[in-house]
């Protein structure tokens, strides 16, 4: 190689592929209700546990979930992290709290944001409630819920997290 030639160590090859994304039949039913401002789960016919968001099967039993169950938009912090770096493609400003939340009436957590709180006060067992976007902005998306905020209810004992009925603590 002559010395004038620059050494090539790489080339940029951008790859663009277009997909028509489908949610799945079960998630479709869930998203249709989220568009109406209602959280729903699906109950496993075998173990009776309620999944949210439903993905089509009880992963534990490997059977389809059909029965739809309406859930509260209140829930409990199962665990959380405080994220100090930005998420690619997400405008949210760090540091922010990402929590594993179990809505009342479900037996499994999903991930969502927590806000209107002091990050240092967030803790496992804490009670929270959804803060929804204005109704006119609702779409087929979990982002209809802007975030969850702490509410003035007593903490849930560890052993009861993920086991509360839809009526919450009083139930």
């Amino acid at each position: 190689m002559s010395e004038e030639n620059e050494v090539i160590t790489g080339i940029e090859v951008p790859i663009f592929l277009k997909y028509n994304f489908t949610a799945g039949a079960s998630p479709t039913r869930f998203l249709a209700r989220v568009k109406e401002g209602v959280l729903t789960g699906q109950r496993c016919p075998k173990c009776k546990q309620v999944y949210v968001p439903p993905r089509g099967a009880c992963a534990g039993c490997g059977v389809p979930t059909e029965e739809e169950v309406e859930l509260a938009d209140k829930g409990t912090v199962q665990s959380f992290t405080i994220v100090s770096i930005p998420i690619p493609g997400n405008p949210i400003e760090p540091p922010f709290v990402v929590a594993n939340l179990v809505p009342d009436g479900a037996n499994i957590s999903f991930i969502h944001l927590m806000s209107e709180c002091d990050n240092a006060d967030v803790h496992i067992g804490q009670r929270v409630q959804a803060v929804w976007k204005p109704e006119e902005e609702w779409d087929y998306a979990m982002d209809n819920i802007k975030y969850f905020k702490p509410i003035d209810e007593p903490d849930v004992p560890i052993e009861k997290i993920g086991k509360l009925p839809v009526t919450g603590l009083e139930g």
């Binding site: 039949a25 079960s26 089509g56």
Partner: peptide, 14 residues
């Protein structure tokens, strides 16, 4: 297969 996702495609066959 329309709205069906992977799990929903597999389960009936299994």
């Amino acid at each position: 297969a329309g709205a069906l996702n992977e799990v929903e495609l597999i389960i009936p066959v299994l």
